[in-house]
Simulated scan of single mutants.
Amino acid sequence: MKTDKDIYVHNWQELQEALFQDSFDKRINRHRSSYVYRGMYNKDFDLRTSLIRLGGSFDQLEPHLLRNFKKYAHNNASPGHSVWNWLAVAQHHGLPTRLLDWTYSPYVALHFATANTAQFKTDGAIWCVNYVKSNQYLPKALKEAIENEGSNVFTPEMLEPVCASLKQLAALQEEEFVLFLEPPSLDGRIIHQFALFSMMSKVDAMLSTWLMEHPELFFRIIIPASLKWEIRDKLDQANITERVLFPGLGGLSQWLKRHYTTI
Results as ranks from 00 to 15, higher is better:
His74Val: 02
Arg53Ile: 02
Met40Tyr: 07
Pro139Cys: 10
Ala18Phe: 03
Ala109Tyr: 03
Ile190Met: 08
Val129Lys: 07
Glu242His: 15
Leu179Cys: 12
Val153Lys: 10
Lys26Asn: 08
Asp25Glu: 10
Tyr72Met: 03
Thr49Ile: 03
His31Ile: 13
Gln21Asn: 11
Tyr104Met: 01
Phe20Ile: 12
Leu211Val: 11
Ile240Asp: 00
Asn85Tyr: 10
Lys257Met: 03
Phe20Lys: 11
Arg67Lys: 14
Asn148Gly: 14
Ala90Gly: 12
Glu14Tyr: 05
Leu54His: 06
Gly250Asn: 14
Ala205Ile: 07
Trp12Val: 07
Val203Arg: 14
Phe197Trp: 12
Ser23Gly: 10
Lys202Met: 09
Ile7Phe: 05
Pro247Met: 10
Trp12Ala: 03
Ala170Met: 02
Phe24Glu: 12
Asp46Gly: 15
Leu235Lys: 02
Ala77Ser: 05
Gln21Phe: 01
Arg32Phe: 09
His10Tyr: 07
Ser105Phe: 00
Leu54Gln: 13
Asn76Pro: 00
Met212Asn: 14
Tyr260Leu: 01
Asn75Met: 06
Met212Pro: 00
Tyr72Pro: 01
Ala164Met: 05
Trp127Asn: 13
Leu186Asp: 06
Val83Ala: 02
Asp101Met: 02
Pro224Leu: 08
Gln13Lys: 13
Ala88Phe: 07
Ala118Ser: 13
Arg53Asn: 06
Phe194Met: 09
Trp12Arg: 07
Gln16Lys: 14
Ser151Thr: 00
Asp101Phe: 01
Leu169Lys: 10
Val244Leu: 14
Ala90Leu: 08
Asp123Ile: 03
